[in-house]
Amino acid sequence: MGEIDNGTVDLSSMDEVFEQYSEEQGALIPILQKAQNTYGWLPGDVLELIAERLGVSPGQVYGVATFYAQFYLEEQGRHILKLCDGTACHVRGTPILVTAMEDGMNIRPGETSEDGELTMEIVYCLGSCALAPVAVLDEQVMGRMRPQMIVRRVEKHIASAKKATEA
């Protein structure tokens, strides 16, 4: 039985969210979205709090949170790389980008690197098909990616972010 990792989180940040959706019917999904914006993922404590405040069962919240691809039930890397494998990107080379990342950074789709820096995931279509293949690193869209570029771009991005925090 997969226990959820209940990292300690400040639950009071959710008060505002509940306030905002107090009148709205069927607000579970937007509340989960806001919670994920707040914490970066959905800790077990937060799921239980949402269940309690919405008067639904924890199971329903968990069922919804695991149904939708958007929600993370595990802590994510500091940086997130999304590789689009929509049809257009697929025929234009996303699989080879995955290979390049696997070989170059030793990370597989759906995984977070051991140092917690990077999470890589495959997504279906970001709607930027004309720029295929597309990768999104944090918020930054990178079109027409090539295998030799992607590893470099990701490494550079992580390194400069590290430098910025250290400074």
């Binding site: 226990e3 959820i4 077990g44 069962s57 199971g59 968990y62 069922g63 695991t66 149904f67």
Partner: peptide, 27 residues
């Protein structure tokens, strides 16, 4: 009592108690 629900989707769909907890912890 809402102990049981389905989690995940597709072939991975799975019956879980609460948030995939032991049943007694899921009320």
């Amino acid at each position: 009592r809402d102990v049981w629900s389905f989690a995940f989707r597709g072939f991975e769909t799975k019956l879980v108690a609460g948030t995939d907890q032991p049943m007694l912890d899921a009320r």
